[in-house]
Simulated scan of single mutants.
Amino acid sequence: MTEQVIAAIDGSQFAEGVCDYAAWASLALEAPLTLVHIVDNHAGAPEAQDLSGSLRFGAREKLMEELSALDEQRARVNREQGKLMLEAASARAVEGGVSAPTLRQLNGTLVETLVALEKEMRLLVVGKRGETDHQASGHLGAHLERMVREMHRPILMVPRAFKRPEQVLIAFDGSKTAKKGIEMLARSPLFVGVTCHVLIVGSYTAEHRSELAWALGTLRDAGHHVQGEVRAGEVDDVLQAYEQENAIDLLVMGAYGHSRIRHLLVGSTTTTMLRNSRIPVLILR
């Protein structure tokens, strides 16, 4: 089975960004694009109240029938809305240069359904927040946190508006799995022609300098333009400062290892960097 770029399309304000970044990745990776809309008929449904103590049997039976009919109507509306969203996303992707994206509408909960698609997936593209997540500024939905923990494919989390990446920052901790990430990026056609920055957050030690030299050399040998630094400080603060100073368009981080970068992603401070990021974040597993 050919691995695909899979984009999770919903009715949120991030849907256009998801579509545009997915089209870019599909073309760069020369991988088919599949646009997926997941219908979760229980998401956002009001909590049912137990009215059995205050209703006669006949009235209660009628109420349950009416609620069942409403559920069916809501499910039908959700499916129709999803089909319209997929058609609009497909037209946008074709406009972006993708030929014949596949459209799929699936029933189930978001994370479990996407996990079931992992074997077909080369890259998953999702919005920073989904349509059912809290819309307050800076909030990162629990769905994305669960994806980071449970999925084993790269996840590209994107903002609302697309900008073709030209300056990519790789947060590197020198671990064995982080080195595998560098080697994977070196081989990937996704970042051909862009400048790859490698940043180690930590003390300026001989070990860190050696690790940085290895990462830059690996990327350079693969034909990438590279630059990098070792900087001390708090991970999120250092990464954000480097992003601003170097006009970074996309951040690559790994949900691996045992460093402070791992704890940023899968520890108690998971949302800090992702929540504050105004650029796409590619999470490697």
Rank of each mutant, 00 (worst) to 15 (best):
residue 245 E to K: 07
residue 201 V to P: 15
residue 249 D to P: 02
residue 216 L to G: 13
residue 5 V to D: 05
residue 54 S to W: 12
residue 30 E to K: 14
residue 246 N to R: 12
residue 250 L to E: 05
residue 125 V to N: 05
residue 131 E to Y: 03
residue 53 G to Q: 05
residue 264 L to W: 05
residue 279 I to G: 07
residue 273 M to F: 01
residue 119 K to G: 11
residue 140 L to H: 07
residue 219 L to D: 01
residue 114 L to R: 15
residue 244 Q to D: 13
residue 167 Q to P: 04
residue 265 L to P: 03
residue 25 A to C: 05
residue 100 A to E: 15
residue 235 V to P: 08
residue 119 K to E: 15
residue 122 R to W: 12
residue 52 S to K: 04
residue 87 E to T: 11
residue 146 R to A: 15
residue 151 M to T: 14
residue 235 V to A: 14
residue 215 A to R: 01
residue 205 T to L: 10
residue 51 L to M: 15
residue 192 V to Q: 02
residue 110 L to E: 01
residue 77 V to K: 13
residue 243 E to Q: 07
residue 260 R to Y: 01
residue 248 I to H: 07
residue 5 V to W: 03
residue 30 E to A: 11
residue 284 L to T: 01
residue 118 E to Q: 07
residue 160 R to N: 08
residue 64 M to K: 11
residue 192 V to E: 04
residue 74 R to V: 08
residue 221 D to G: 13
residue 186 A to E: 00
residue 56 R to N: 06
residue 183 E to P: 07
residue 247 A to K: 01
residue 77 V to W: 14
residue 160 R to Q: 14
residue 24 W to C: 05
residue 278 R to S: 15
residue 123 L to R: 03
residue 62 K to Q: 06
residue 4 Q to M: 00
residue 55 L to E: 11
residue 189 P to F: 03
residue 131 E to Q: 04
residue 208 H to Y: 08
residue 258 H to L: 08
residue 51 L to A: 04
residue 144 L to Y: 07
residue 156 L to S: 11
residue 215 A to V: 00
residue 256 Y to C: 07
residue 36 V to Y: 13
residue 41 N to Y: 02
residue 47 E to S: 07
residue 168 V to S: 05
residue 112 E to I: 03
residue 151 M to S: 13
residue 117 L to R: 00
residue 101 P to R: 06
residue 67 L to C: 15
residue 210 S to A: 08
residue 278 R to Y: 15
residue 82 G to A: 14
residue 220 R to D: 15
residue 70 L to I: 06
residue 181 G to F: 05
residue 29 L to S: 12
residue 263 H to V: 03
residue 30 E to W: 11
residue 119 K to W: 13
residue 218 T to F: 09
residue 208 H to K: 10
residue 48 A to T: 15
residue 265 L to H: 05
residue 216 L to E: 13
residue 269 T to M: 03
residue 110 L to G: 05
residue 279 I to F: 01
residue 174 G to I: 03
residue 136 A to F: 11
residue 258 H to N: 08
residue 244 Q to W: 10
residue 167 Q to E: 11
residue 283 I to Y: 02
residue 225 H to K: 07
residue 167 Q to K: 04
residue 145 E to H: 13
residue 113 T to L: 14
residue 85 M to Y: 14
residue 148 V to E: 04
residue 230 V to F: 00
residue 185 L to F: 04
residue 45 A to C: 13
residue 75 A to E: 09
residue 113 T to F: 02
residue 83 K to S: 07
residue 27 L to A: 01
residue 244 Q to M: 15
residue 75 A to F: 12
residue 242 Y to I: 01
residue 211 E to C: 05
residue 279 I to C: 04
residue 63 L to E: 12
residue 59 A to W: 03
residue 92 R to N: 06
residue 220 R to E: 09
residue 107 N to D: 08
residue 90 S to Y: 10
